[in-house]
Design a protein around this nucleic acid. Structure first.
Lengths: 139, 139
DNA sequence: CCGAAAGCCAACCAATTAAGTAGGGAATGA
DNA sequence: TCATTCCCTACTTAATTGGTTGGCTTTCGG
């Protein structure tokens, strides 16, 4: 039940973009990669997911790079995790589309469902804005 | 962020013990393994963890096997997951003992902490009894 | 006392997945 | 036109998971 680097790096990259944004300018991946100590090549793949999900915009060429496509308060942790393909479902049997697993003895399934739900609710309730500004009211 | 077989099998084994308990008698691993379609050898290792954590009692020899060491209402999902070493902390940086990770840019850490907490709270609130009796009040 | 039925345990192995690397292409702006 | 930067595919390595082998010990019935 560990987060993979996809989720961890993805969140850090987005936080970096939020913190170092500079008007409408684009931030080259190289800078993020250096600040976050994440291999540029690997980060690139994560950015592809973030771009396809419409969380960031990219610009090629000189002065190119990435920037947030929406305001930080309109991007949730869940958005990010799904964009980088960090699966939120704790088991395959509670995955989207799945209705029931092997039937017998799946009392466990209800437990995984509840735990997954609570995870998703939490990820949904935290925005990138709150993340970088460290809001502290309990949930 | 997927559960491993440790957690999944562990929960199923415990549910099996709860459902098929038979007074003070012990249930041989073989039966659980057959009912749950889990390799006996692999299950064995999980039972070792459950035993060390005091969730089940074992008895060797003829008529031996396993049985719950406490009442199902006194065993939580969290107890089980920890006993089989399914880590509850979503990242290493929110693991027990860790106070801070690499310092800079660890805005993410607070997020992982919150998500881990919500997971643990949920796992703590579900007992084996509720699990096998399918209680349905929302949490 | 003997032997079958169980649990106990350490070492090993295979398959899968995660993580990281290499390298070429295409757009963009100075 | 050239340096810069994103874009994409294929490959490689490392780690973890899931499972197996096999021998040992305890216990109890006969």
């Amino acid at each position: 039940m560990k987060m993979t680097t996809k989720g961890r790096y993805g969140l850090r990259a987005m936080a970096d973009l939020a913190v170092h944004h500079d008007g409408d300018n684009f931030i080259p991946l190289k800078h993020i990669s250096e600040r976050q100590h994440i291999s540029e090549n690997y980060l690139e793949r994560l950015m592809a997911g973030l771009r396809r999900s419409g969380l960031v915009q990219a610009q090629r060429g000189t002065q190119g790079g990435y920037r947030l496509a929406r305001k930080p308060e309109e991007i949730t942790v869940r958005d990010i995790l799904e964009a980088v393909r960090e699966p939120m479902a704790l088991t395959d049997c509670v995955e989207e589309g799945q209705t029931s697993c092997r039937g017998h003895y799946c009392t466990s399934r209800k437990v995984w469902q509840k735990m997954t739900d609570s995870l998703i609710r939490m990820a949904d309730s935290i925005t990138l804005y709150e993340m970088v500004h460290g809001e502290e009211h309990d949930r």
